[in-house]
Each structure stands twice: as structure tokens, then as C-alpha cells.
Amino acid sequence: MGFHLDWSGVLAGAPLHWLVTGLVTTLAVTLAASLLATVLAVGLLGLRVADNRLARGAARTIVALFRDTPLLVQILFWYFAAFGLLPGGVRDWINADHPWAVLPANVPLISPEFLAATWGLGVFSAVFIAEEIRAGLQALSPGQREAALSQGFGHWSALYHVLLPQALANAYQPTVGQYLNLMKLSSLATAIGLAEITYQVRQIESFNAHAVEAFAAGTLLYLLLGVVLGRLLLAIGPSGAGGRTSEERQADARPAGEGRHGL
């Protein structure tokens, strides 16, 4: 049987509109969850590196809980179980219409689906982001901290002025990877009926059976988002360890003497 693609079933009419809605939804949930993940990651990292055994233990438990269980299960939990535990008034408010909180292409920001997906993705990603930065901290020579302490810096000011700037620069690329992961993992929210790209692709497929074209279009959208997002984040970040420009690092090649510790 001859195989030919018919894009009119995907790139016109209702299907096109659905794809646009899906794209806006994916973008919105990615952005919202990224912001949430950033805030939560700061808090979690704070616990993780605290000068207090109890705080560190609590952080380790949180990390294990969210890192070592499937994200799909977590999203289903937030949507089906946790949402039901909210006070009735809050649930009613979330379920109500909020015309001021609707994005173009008719994407509502306050709905159980959007909020559960944002929360689930945000918590899950926060754990991974915090762990990337902690790995960046651990990769630093212990001498960095000792030098700061010996100059009169405290635990937190040493972290803030000396350790974190270097850890963030070291961990920047893997951390960007976690934000891109978040974008891709938002496809799991199709399971709770969030009308993002994957959800729309399946809707097109069941509407006119243009499965290959629909999935091709969906895949392309994810790919495009990933490339654009990745380029953007890497462009605004430091170009390498130490947070310096490439010209500066080229000059590094000069003295090759020993006794220089890697950072």
C-alpha cells in the first residue's frame, strides 16, 4: 500500500486550532512549573545544605520520595487524591470560571488539571534541580569553603558569596537539562486531561485518524520548543565553569604549572 502524508487533516480547521491550544498549554504549564520548581528548589537546597542535621534529613527524605517514584503516579496523586483533600471552598473556586485567567487560544490557568500538573511537575523538577546544584557544590574543593571560613565568613555567607556562584556556573548545563526535561515531561499531564500538545495529538488522531501526521506535528513542536528553550537558556547562562567568557578561558591555557587545583 502506498504511504503518503496528508497534512490537511492536521494543519487546518479544528485540528490546527487544537494544536495551537496544545502548544500554548504546554508553554504555560512549562513556564508555571519552572517558576514553581525554581522557588521550591531554592528552599529544598537551603534545607539540604543547612548547618542542621534535622533539616538535612528532612530534605533527603523529600528528595527520595519525589525522585524515586514515577512522575505519572505523582501527577495522578495530586489530581485525584490531593485535590479532593482541599477545603470545599477552594475546590469550588478552582472549578469556577476565571475569565481574567484565560490565555489566548482559550487556555484556562485556573483549573484542577492545570494546577495539579503545574504542582506535580514543579515539585518533581525542584528535587532534580536542587540535586544538580548540590552536586555542583560537592564538586568544589573543600578548600574553597575553608578559605571563606578562615576569612570570617559564616556558613551561609560562604555559601552565598563563594560556593554558590561557582556551583551554579558548574551546574548550569545539567540544570538547563532539568528545565528541558520538565517541558518534555509535561506530556504526562495528558493522563489527567490537561489539553497540552500530547492530548491534542491524540484528539486529532481519534477525530480523523491522521495518526502519523498528528504525531509528527506534535513531535516537531516538542523538538522546536526544546531547541528554542535550550538555546535561550544556554545563551543567557555562563559559557563555562567559573562563569566566564570564552575569551577569558582561552587565556587559561597559558600557565600549565602544577599546583593549580581544578575548580
Binding site: L140, A147, G242
Partner: peptide
């Protein structure tokens, strides 16, 4: 003041 064997200058 403390001066270390490995210098420990702040790398950034």
C-alpha cells in the same frame, strides 16, 4: 590570616 598549601583562591 590563613595561607593554604593549595592557595584556595576563589575560583570565580
Amino acid at each position: 590570616g590563613f595561607v593554604f598549601q593549595q592557595f584556595n583562591l576563589y575560583g570565580h
